[in-house]
Amino acid sequence: MDFFISHYNYWIVIFLMMVGLYTVINRGNLIKKIIGLNIFQVSVFFLYISMGAVKDGAAPIITEGVKLYSNPLPHVLILTAIVVGVATTALGLALVVRIKESYGTIEEDEIHEMDHSL
Protein backbone atom coordinates (compact mmCIF):
# COMPACT_ATOMS: atom_id res chain seq x y z
CA MET A 1 0.00 0.00 0.00
CA ASP A 2 2.86 2.36 0.83
CA PHE A 3 4.44 1.57 -2.51
CA PHE A 4 1.14 2.32 -4.26
CA ILE A 5 0.77 5.71 -2.56
CA SER A 6 4.35 6.74 -3.16
CA HIS A 7 4.18 5.88 -6.87
CA TYR A 8 0.58 6.92 -7.53
CA ASN A 9 1.68 10.32 -8.86
CA TYR A 10 3.96 8.79 -11.47
CA TRP A 11 1.31 6.37 -12.67
CA ILE A 12 -1.23 9.14 -13.13
CA VAL A 13 1.47 11.08 -14.99
CA ILE A 14 1.97 8.13 -17.32
CA PHE A 15 -1.79 7.74 -17.77
CA LEU A 16 -2.13 11.41 -18.75
CA MET A 17 0.87 11.11 -21.05
CA MET A 18 -0.68 8.15 -22.81
CA VAL A 19 -4.07 9.89 -23.10
CA GLY A 20 -2.28 12.77 -24.80
CA LEU A 21 -0.30 10.45 -27.07
CA TYR A 22 -3.46 8.54 -28.03
CA THR A 23 -5.20 11.79 -28.95
CA VAL A 24 -2.29 12.86 -31.11
CA ILE A 25 -2.10 9.50 -32.92
CA ASN A 26 -5.76 8.62 -33.24
CA ARG A 27 -7.76 11.80 -33.68
CA GLY A 28 -7.84 13.42 -37.11
CA ASN A 29 -8.98 16.87 -36.05
CA LEU A 30 -6.06 19.27 -35.81
CA ILE A 31 -7.43 21.29 -32.86
CA LYS A 32 -7.99 18.03 -30.98
CA LYS A 33 -4.42 17.02 -31.73
CA ILE A 34 -3.16 20.26 -30.21
CA ILE A 35 -5.28 19.68 -27.09
CA GLY A 36 -3.71 16.22 -26.90
CA LEU A 37 -0.22 17.70 -27.14
CA ASN A 38 -1.11 20.08 -24.31
CA ILE A 39 -2.29 17.21 -22.09
CA PHE A 40 1.02 15.46 -22.79
CA GLN A 41 2.87 18.62 -21.89
CA VAL A 42 1.02 19.07 -18.57
CA SER A 43 1.84 15.47 -17.67
CA VAL A 44 5.55 16.21 -18.12
CA PHE A 45 5.14 19.22 -15.81
CA PHE A 46 3.66 16.92 -13.18
CA LEU A 47 6.52 14.48 -13.56
CA TYR A 48 9.05 17.22 -12.78
CA ILE A 49 7.09 18.82 -9.93
CA SER A 50 6.37 15.42 -8.34
CA MET A 51 10.08 14.64 -8.36
CA GLY A 52 10.89 17.95 -6.69
CA ALA A 53 8.25 17.68 -3.97
CA VAL A 54 9.50 16.93 -0.46
CA LYS A 55 7.23 15.51 2.22
CA ASP A 56 6.40 18.19 4.82
CA GLY A 57 8.63 20.61 2.91
CA ALA A 58 7.71 24.27 2.56
CA ALA A 59 7.44 26.26 -0.65
CA PRO A 60 10.96 27.40 -1.63
CA ILE A 61 10.75 30.92 -0.18
CA ILE A 62 13.21 31.39 2.66
CA THR A 63 11.33 31.96 5.91
CA GLU A 64 12.69 32.03 9.42
CA GLY A 65 12.17 28.85 11.40
CA VAL A 66 11.67 26.61 8.36
CA LYS A 67 14.30 23.95 7.76
CA LEU A 68 12.91 21.76 4.96
CA TYR A 69 12.12 23.19 1.53
CA SER A 70 10.92 21.65 -1.71
CA ASN A 71 13.43 21.39 -4.53
CA PRO A 72 13.36 24.77 -6.35
CA LEU A 73 15.08 23.63 -9.53
CA PRO A 74 12.12 21.77 -11.16
CA HIS A 75 9.94 24.79 -10.37
CA VAL A 76 12.28 27.05 -12.34
CA LEU A 77 12.43 24.70 -15.31
CA ILE A 78 8.67 24.17 -15.45
CA LEU A 79 7.82 27.82 -14.88
CA THR A 80 9.61 28.81 -18.06
CA ALA A 81 8.37 25.70 -19.87
CA ILE A 82 4.72 26.68 -19.27
CA VAL A 83 5.15 30.10 -20.86
CA VAL A 84 7.19 28.71 -23.74
CA GLY A 85 4.50 26.03 -24.08
CA VAL A 86 1.71 28.55 -24.58
CA ALA A 87 3.80 30.42 -27.15
CA THR A 88 4.39 27.24 -29.14
CA THR A 89 0.72 26.22 -28.78
CA ALA A 90 -0.19 29.59 -30.27
CA LEU A 91 2.17 28.88 -33.16
CA GLY A 92 0.47 25.52 -33.74
CA LEU A 93 -2.97 27.11 -33.65
CA ALA A 94 -1.81 29.77 -36.12
CA LEU A 95 -0.77 26.98 -38.49
CA VAL A 96 -4.22 25.39 -38.04
CA VAL A 97 -5.87 28.68 -38.99
CA ARG A 98 -3.71 28.95 -42.12
CA ILE A 99 -4.47 25.33 -43.06
CA LYS A 100 -8.18 26.03 -42.71
CA GLU A 101 -7.83 29.09 -44.95
CA SER A 102 -6.04 27.22 -47.72
CA TYR A 103 -7.75 23.83 -47.57
CA GLY A 104 -11.15 24.67 -46.11
CA THR A 105 -10.93 21.88 -43.54
CA ILE A 106 -8.99 20.92 -40.43
CA GLU A 107 -9.63 17.18 -40.67
CA GLU A 108 -6.46 15.29 -41.42
CA ASP A 109 -7.90 12.70 -43.81
CA GLU A 110 -9.67 15.33 -45.92
CA ILE A 111 -6.39 17.21 -46.26
CA HIS A 112 -4.66 14.01 -47.38
CA GLU A 113 -7.43 13.43 -49.93
CA MET A 114 -7.01 16.90 -51.39
CA ASP A 115 -3.26 16.50 -51.67
CA HIS A 116 -3.53 12.94 -53.08
CA SER A 117 -1.03 11.94 -50.45
CA LEU A 118 -1.46 8.78 -48.36
Binding site: I61, I82, V83
Partner: peptide, 12 residues
Protein backbone atom coordinates in the same frame (compact mmCIF):
# COMPACT_ATOMS: atom_id res chain seq x y z
CA UNK B 1 11.92 38.73 -5.12
CA UNK B 2 10.14 38.22 -1.82
CA UNK B 3 6.97 36.30 -2.57
CA UNK B 4 5.88 34.06 -5.41
CA UNK B 5 5.99 35.89 -8.71
CA UNK B 6 8.29 37.31 -11.31
CA UNK B 7 8.44 38.50 -14.88
CA UNK B 8 6.79 35.50 -16.52
CA UNK B 9 3.74 35.52 -14.25
CA UNK B 10 3.39 39.29 -14.25
CA UNK B 11 3.61 39.46 -18.03
CA UNK B 12 0.89 36.88 -18.47
Amino acid sequence: DFGPGGGFQAGV
